[in-house]
Each structure stands twice: as C-alpha cells, then as structure tokens.
Nucleic acid binder design. Structure first.
Lengths: 151, 151
DNA sequence: TATTGTTATACTCTATAACTATA
DNA sequence: TATAGTTATAGAGTATAACAATA
C-alpha cells in the first residue's frame, strides 16, 4: 500500500481516525456505568450549555449523521426522563429539546469520572501544549466537513 | 458544562473525536461504491502490506475492539473472496489471514479515489506541515491506548 | 491453566424512504 | 416547493459468554 501520498500524510489520517476511535472507546465503559453512551453524553452536554434548549435540526447537524438517528437517541433520552421535547416558539414545524433536572443530575454524576478519564487516556499522553496545538489543527477540519454536510 | 478542565483541553478532546468521525464518514460513501466499509478497507490495507499474512490476534488488537468482531468482518471478506484464512505454521491454534488476488484487485481499484478524498476532506484542510504535526501529537495517544488494550 | 479463534445470542445503532405538518 | 421531524423498516455491526482446540 505505497502510493501517491507520502507516508507522513497517510499516517496522519490513520492516526486521526484510530486515535479518535480509541479515545472514545476508552471512555465508553465509564459512561455506560451511568447508562450513557458517547452519543447520548454529547447530546446531554450540548443541552446543558443551552438553558433555552436546542432545535432538533441543530443537534442533528452537530452531533449525528442523520435526522432519524437523532430522533432515535433523543426519544430514548426522553423515555429515561433526561430530556424533554416541546414545540418551537417561532416555527411550528420545529421541536426544541431541553435537558431535565434529572438529566442535569445524571450529567453531573457522570462528569467527574469522565474528565478524569479524558485526562488519563488522552491529555496526559500529549506533550505540554499539545492539546491547544491539536485543537488548532483540527478546527478547520471540523468546520470544513460540517460545512460539507450542510450542502 | 464548565468544570475542572479548561476549555482548551476539553475542546481538543471533542475536536479529536468529532474530526475522526467526520473524516471517516466523508470517506465511507466512496468505499461503499466498491462494496467496502472503513473497517474492511483497513483490514485489506493491512493485509496488503503483509505478503505472508497476519495472525487474527494481531489484526484484532490493531483494528477492532473484540476478537469476535474481527472474525465477523474477516468471515465476510472471505465469503467475498477477498481474503483467505489458513492455519498458522508455528501455532496450531492460530489462524493467518491473507489478501487474495481479487482482494488486491479491489483494493487497487478503490485506492485512487480514496486517496483523492483523503486529500480533499482532510489533508487540504490542514495548514502546511500540519499532517506531520498531527501525526506526532497523536502517536503517543495511539500507542498508549493500544498498550492499554493489551492489558 | 492460559490463549486462539469461532459461534450463538441478543442487542444497539444506522440509514433510507415514506409520511405529516408547516413555511 | 422546501423544510422539520417522525416513523417504519430492514440491515449491519457489536460485545459477551460459552465453547473447542492447542500451548
């Protein structure tokens, strides 16, 4: 498998995909202890930053790859009492999801252990200043590919 | 969701997971045109670098999170005639997977388009020299978490 | 006893397309 | 006509534990 891309560039691509996968997998057991998955955790975390709730459309484009996938996840969170859905004020087609008090409680219970593992399995493995460098490098990738999705 | 980790560090972790996911998703449609998934592509690519084949155990620890998951994927590739399995020379418990001529043909057919998309969806979004910086930053993360898995 | 690999099982997740309602 | 969200469906992937064979 040697070809037009030099090894450095291909290696970066493999490293990105593999590292993301390994980090997420390393964190998933701890989340599972609280009945959460990485996707559900990211939904709750996003909602906890938005007291007024978030439109389903926005959550979908930010966190998953299909609208139906988000409906599935949020429906489960709602059944568990962690999230509520209600009609949007300005657009009668719209639905706004909000985190509930129970959802906040669960998130607060899961968060310290999560942070601990983010440190142990990721941040502590980076050189000093590495987190910031990494974020800066990946920012345009995330922005570029999210823009793609909108199209 | 503001807490013990400063924003920079948490952002790096989210950026890593999201970027890896977005890049893989951006490439998966092109692979699907050749009947492949990202996991199957990575298995074929690994085998194409190893003329003598690779032990199932090694493939599993490098590419997936469970032995049974690898068996599932390789069984499918074998059914498609892209991979063959045979007993290991040195260990009668062991199984060695090898890519077939058809597998090589398919990989060569899929590779150019794959590389093109790796460039368009990832490398071209990085600053000059970014690929190497990224790889260096992520190397210890990948190595550290792979070592974890062995434990 | 430990390891290799497979299997059976049961479950979760995903994406597509069809649908309703509203803009 | 286009968009927001849901639903139905059908398929793919996953992990666990139990198992057989070998070290």
């Amino acid at each position: 498998m040697s070809d037009k891309l030099d090894t450095e560039e291909l290696s970066a691509y493999f490293a990105l995909v593999v590292a993301g996968d390994l980090v997420q997998h390393a964190l998933s057991s701890q989340l599972a202890e609280h009945g959460l998955t990485p996707v559900k955790f990211s939904i709750l975390a996003s909602l906890s930053d938005a007291p007024d709730g978030v439109r389903m459309r926005e959550l979908a484009s930010a966190l998953v790859h299909s609208r139906s996938g988000l409906t599935y996840q949020v429906a489960q969170l709602e059944r568990q009492g962690l999230v509520s859905r209600s009609a949007a004020d300005d657009d009668d087609r719209g639905v706004v999801a909000r985190i509930t008090a129970d959802g906040t409680t669960l998130l607060q219970a899961a968060f310290p252990g999560h942070l601990e593992l983010v440190r142990a399995k990721f941040l502590d493995l980076l050189p000093r200043g590495g987190a910031e460098k990494l974020r800066r490098l990946l920012e345009p990738v995330v922005d570029g590919l999210r823009a793609d999705k909108a199209t």
